[in-house]
Computed example of a mutant assay.
Amino acid sequence: MNAPQHRSPAPETLWYARGPVPTPLGIAAQQGWLNQAFSQFGTEAHALSESGDPAVRQSFYDHTQPNSVRQSGSIAALWARARGSDTRLIGLTWTDEYQALIALPESGIRTVSDLRGRRIGLPRHVDRTVDIFRISALRGCLNALATEAISEHEVEWADIDVVAPDITALHEPHPYSAEARALLRGEVDAIFVKGSQGAEASHWLAAHTVIDIGRHPDPALRCNNGTPRTLTVDAALLDNYPQLVERVLREVQRAAQWAENNPLLTRQFIARETRSSEYWAAHAYGEDVHRHMHTTLEPVYVDALQRYADFLSARGFIAHPVDVRGWISDAPLAALRASAPQGASYAR
């Protein structure tokens, strides 16, 4: 007979991270549900961004902080996995967003076809651990060009150097200020912007939206850093405290259900998360964003993430290929569904 396993008490702190994007984890954090949920375990929930230790905040990228969960864009999660961080993927969300190539009206660029032979700016964040903005911009631009069968070699690419605080810093400037300056100075003909702050930047530039690839009917062309977004946990947390991970997922799904029932409040929460106004949040993520916050492991989402991982690997953005299905642990979601009241959204 095997000796019984003795687990240590629940950790004092559970760390969580989310980017400035729409996530149900962000809603749960804003509502105070995480600390309420974990108080019964004697555990406090803290955001990585609240830590005064840069090494702790750095875990947004490398996911090395013990007892941590992260729900945000897929690039950092895949980058960390590729370089050996022992994490598990327990869920995906797909919230479509504004992803646009924009140009000034005087450029004469009206359609994607007009981009042939023109100069497209790509941000280059020289101080970033992994350049999420550059990767997202390149992917969005390539997807946009693909709608008119334009090769990447038929346009000119121009680097736009951005020296800005990392996401682990306490304050950041507007994310598209460098690209906007390059566009206004005529150094580039078109730039890529996304999300509510990208939509806002396009407005104050009085720019023309050449294409919003985020509204394209083909989900393969909409696939980028935020579509889908990943929910990951460190493997030791899942192995040692599966009940805590299941509780995280329960609160995430609770937030998604709350969002579906509270569209106006959800827009307010997303505006705060994305550091923008409610108007631009609705413009960027859609009037029905409250219906697209559920976390799942639907095969279509998994397949999309695998294609994105393959893109990152082929372009040299991650150190090694990532087998997405081998990364997944579906146990927390299965346990949650098994214990869910009949009719709950995550029981379907």
Score class of each variant (00 low, 15 high):
residue 135 I to F: 10
residue 278 E to L: 01
residue 236 A to C: 05
residue 346 Y to M: 03
residue 248 V to K: 09
residue 151 S to H: 08
residue 192 F to E: 02
residue 122 L to Y: 09
residue 191 I to N: 03
residue 123 P to A: 00
residue 286 G to P: 08
residue 100 A to S: 07
residue 341 P to Q: 13
residue 215 R to C: 09
residue 326 G to N: 09
residue 283 H to T: 08
residue 201 A to H: 09
residue 86 D to C: 09
residue 57 R to I: 11
residue 100 A to M: 07
residue 276 S to Y: 09
residue 242 P to H: 05
residue 68 S to Y: 07
residue 266 T to K: 14
residue 327 W to H: 11
residue 157 W to P: 07
residue 262 N to H: 15
residue 237 L to Q: 01
residue 211 I to V: 15
residue 1 M to G: 11
residue 39 S to C: 02
residue 241 Y to C: 12
residue 44 E to P: 00
residue 126 V to Y: 08
residue 162 V to L: 09
residue 33 W to F: 06
residue 320 H to A: 15
residue 18 R to T: 12
residue 314 A to K: 05
residue 219 P to T: 05
residue 193 V to R: 12
residue 194 K to D: 08
residue 260 E to Y: 10
residue 316 G to N: 02
residue 226 G to F: 15
residue 121 G to F: 06
residue 118 R to I: 07
residue 93 T to F: 07
residue 53 D to W: 12
residue 192 F to T: 01
residue 275 R to C: 03
residue 101 L to Q: 11
residue 57 R to D: 02
residue 185 R to L: 13
residue 241 Y to K: 12
residue 31 Q to C: 02
residue 330 D to Q: 13
residue 45 A to V: 05
residue 124 R to K: 15
residue 77 A to C: 13
residue 294 H to W: 13
residue 117 G to H: 06
residue 60 F to K: 05
residue 94 W to N: 08
residue 152 E to S: 14
residue 151 S to F: 08
residue 339 S to N: 14
residue 63 H to D: 02
residue 144 A to W: 13
residue 259 A to P: 13
residue 273 E to D: 07
residue 281 A to C: 08
residue 265 L to E: 15
residue 296 T to Q: 12
residue 130 V to M: 13
residue 175 P to H: 07
residue 210 V to F: 08
residue 136 S to G: 12
residue 54 P to C: 13
residue 251 E to K: 11
residue 65 Q to K: 06
residue 6 H to L: 14
residue 212 D to M: 01
residue 143 N to F: 09
residue 123 P to V: 06
residue 146 A to P: 02
residue 36 Q to Y: 10
residue 267 R to D: 00
residue 31 Q to A: 09
residue 106 E to M: 02
residue 189 D to R: 05
residue 272 R to P: 04
residue 133 F to A: 04
residue 342 Q to P: 00
residue 83 R to F: 07
residue 334 A to V: 07
residue 150 I to F: 14
residue 51 S to Q: 03
residue 92 L to P: 00
residue 322 V to T: 06
residue 325 R to H: 09
residue 315 R to M: 14
residue 139 R to E: 01
residue 44 E to G: 02
residue 290 H to K: 04
residue 150 I to V: 03
residue 214 G to W: 08
residue 251 E to I: 04
residue 25 L to W: 08
residue 130 V to C: 00
residue 4 P to E: 10
residue 54 P to D: 14
residue 329 S to I: 00
residue 296 T to P: 00
residue 339 S to L: 11
residue 131 D to M: 08
residue 50 E to K: 06
residue 29 A to C: 06
residue 130 V to K: 11
residue 72 S to R: 02
residue 247 R to A: 10
residue 265 L to C: 12
residue 255 A to F: 06
residue 141 C to T: 04
residue 303 D to K: 11
residue 230 T to Q: 06
residue 38 F to S: 11
residue 287 E to D: 15
residue 281 A to H: 05
residue 10 A to P: 04
residue 178 A to G: 01
residue 102 I to Q: 03
residue 87 T to S: 05
